[in-house]
Amino acid sequence: MKARVHVMLKNGVLDPQGEAVRHALGQLGFDGVEGVRQGKVIELELTETDAAKAEETVTAMCEKLLANTVIESYSVEIA
């Protein structure tokens, strides 16, 4: 079973990397980009076969290591 975790900076937390990407896009002539937020995608290969259990485990992983919930939010997709 595969899981995909999206980690994003929470709203209100300044994302200087996203800002730099937005600026660079503007310089390349891509107009109309009002905001860029940069996050992470983490793919996990799991031996678990039960989707509900997998989601529970991956959520625990996010809380403990994969995201820092002071500044980041996360979402878990099980496939």
Binding site: V13, L14, P16, Q17, A20, N68, V70, I71
Partner: peptide, 8 residues
């Protein structure tokens, strides 16, 4: 938390 420097 310590974030990336604002000047990158």
């Amino acid at each position: 938390v310590l974030l990336r420097n604002s000047g990158l």
